[in-house]
Amino acid sequence: MRKIFPAEELARDIRFRRGRMEERFEDPRMGKIADGSGRRGGKLTPDRPDAAHAARQMMHGIFVGEIQALEGAGRTVWDFDDDEAPFALKLDMARQCWDEARHTEISVKLGEHMGTEIGEFAETTFLYQAACNPDPVLRLTGVNRALEGLAIDVFNTMREFGEASGDPVLTFCEDWMLADEVTHVKMGSDWLRRLTEHDPDRRERALEFQRVVDKLFSFRGFRGEADENPVQLARTFRRMAGFEEAEIDEIAESSKEIAS
């Protein structure tokens, strides 16, 4: 079985449609939102006129993200020899696969609960692409700290949306998945520290990769702390996951810069 599996060849059935990240970056409508001349969706709350649609779309994004997180963690178990990635790290990734598989099933059920069909929205594979980095430390930092950190923000946003709209099913499921994401981020933080203990340059490269991934997902105000950001930065849960206050501040500042 080959190592480092390309995103273009991920297996999906006919219900799925692959979207390109470039299409989103090149969409002129997004430019108008970013420069303030177009209406912004705003924080995901039931008060939004399009609350149901926006929540369904975000839930579908979570669903495909869970599939890719499963694929990414699975690849990390296989892609590296034990001298590149310790066996204990692979055990953590195997445990994460179990979590992501469960999250995928929960997300399918939540999609049904919200009236969404599998493949109703396009899937981009950016999450999996971050999981193709050939350096296991960079891969783990990009995925388990940047993307799973984003997952903390997204799940907390959805959990709060469930609470505000009186939806016990959404609230309960998001709360449980959120707890797992905190563990996944902690794994990333722990392994980053351990594997780069005597290699500060590699640690810095990994943290820089994380910053790049973080910035991409703060794209045009998607995440932040203002009312106009659909996904809210979850400071408390990020602290629980081992993020330093300065790191959280950096993401918040970077989100503001990108949005302006």
């Binding site: 149901a52 369904r56 049904e112 919200m114 009236g115």
Partner: peptide
């Protein structure tokens, strides 16, 4: 007509 998503939109406004 997407009965499921209409029901979800209705529940958000009228309760689960």
């Amino acid at each position: 007509g997407g009965m499921g998503r209409r029901r979800y939109a209705f529940r958000i406004r009228h309760g689960f």
